[in-house]
Design a protein around this nucleic acid. Structure first.
Lengths: 179, 179
DNA sequence: GGCATATATGTGTCAATGCACATATGGATG
DNA sequence: CATCCATATGTGCATTGACACATATATGCC
């Protein structure tokens, strides 16, 4: 049920539609929470029924109408309650690491390509995070309410940098390991 | 369906029971794959039906009989096939980071405690990884078939160290942020 | 004596998730 | 002029996954 909280947290920033949220998940909080758009639309409906979000339909011509969701006082109260509950263990699943464990039973050529692809993805994500940091946190101390976002971003940057150097070192060693 | 592959990969190391696997997931590959024991037992059954693992029941007195699973040639072939498929996107969900994004709507005292708890968990995990590295990879170059495991372990260590320094810095800033 | 813990295996059930598909249209690319 | 991409919302279905519960016994702790 933590997707509902992740959505509420996004909506504390500004009202968003399901479409906006899907993009926001993809770009901004991608490294610690992923969600697909059907999941988001369904969850928004439930949140509406609980009264944690309110919605306004904006009529558009040509495109389908946009439904903008805002967090309500009830939603903010739910966030506060939730914040007192113990944190769930972080959930991680990474195929690539699993393959690496079985290196002698795996197609080496494919593995090298997969690590290279991953390296590229992390470089791109790092660029994205730097961009966000630039446009949002370039001017010295951020306001207190943005401190958490800055700290999350820093972890993301650190994480991407770690992955990048690790991928590079893995590629070197896979190349060296002729056979 | 990637749990099945994670299990097969574990079994390339040595035959294990469901119980062994659950512990192995918990301690060795915890940072990139998590699984609970009911999941593991059910998956083992399916793998048996497909012929990817074979099992031997060891009669024990007092305790329930232990069922030891081994990977078969069919299982190894399945691993090779799987290794050529594109890698699934890593899946990550981390509650703590979500809470941090909504720092102004969250119980600050609880948040500090939660970060501190997380810090402790990462310190412990780092110790565990160092221990594994020590007993398994202390003597110079590892054999080629263990290279992947060493590289995975290195990523785990790097990852834990990153988290530790990040948690420390977050705690400092949360303390500084009086209000 | 009771209670927790470790060993060892499972079932039953519901929530969460992923993926394919469905609909509608404007604008850009080739 | 066709195809792809972006905008925008969803349904339907199968798989995964989490969590409580169930069983059986030995050992150590208070």
């Amino acid at each position: 049920m933590a997707l509902s909280h992740a959505i509420l947290v996004c909506l504390t920033e500004r009202p968003m539609s399901g479409y906006d949220l899907a993009k926001f998940f993809d770009t901004s909080i991608d490294f610690f929470w992923k969600a697909t758009h059907p999941q988001i639309y369904r969850e928004l409906k439930k949140l509406g029924e609980k009264g944690h979000v309110s919605s306004i339909e904006e009529v558009q011509s040509g495109k389908p109408n946009r439904i903008a969701y805002s967090i309500t006082d009830g939603g903010r109260a739910a966030l506060k309650e939730w914040s007192r509950e113990p944190v769930a263990l972080p959930l991680i699943k990474d195929d690539l690491l699993v393959r690496l464990q079985a290196i002698e039973y795996v197609d080496k050529k494919a593995l090298k390509e997969q690590v290279a692809t991953r390296l590229e993805a992390h470089r791109e994500q790092l660029g994205q995070y730097f961009h966000i940091k630039d446009v949002r946190f370039s001017d010295g101390q951020p306001p207190a309410e943005d401190l958490g976002k800055l700290m999350g971003l820093e972890l993301g940057i650190q994480n991407e940098q770690g992955w990048i150097s690790w991928c590079e070192s893995v590629l070197e060693r896979l190349e060296a390991d002729k056979q």
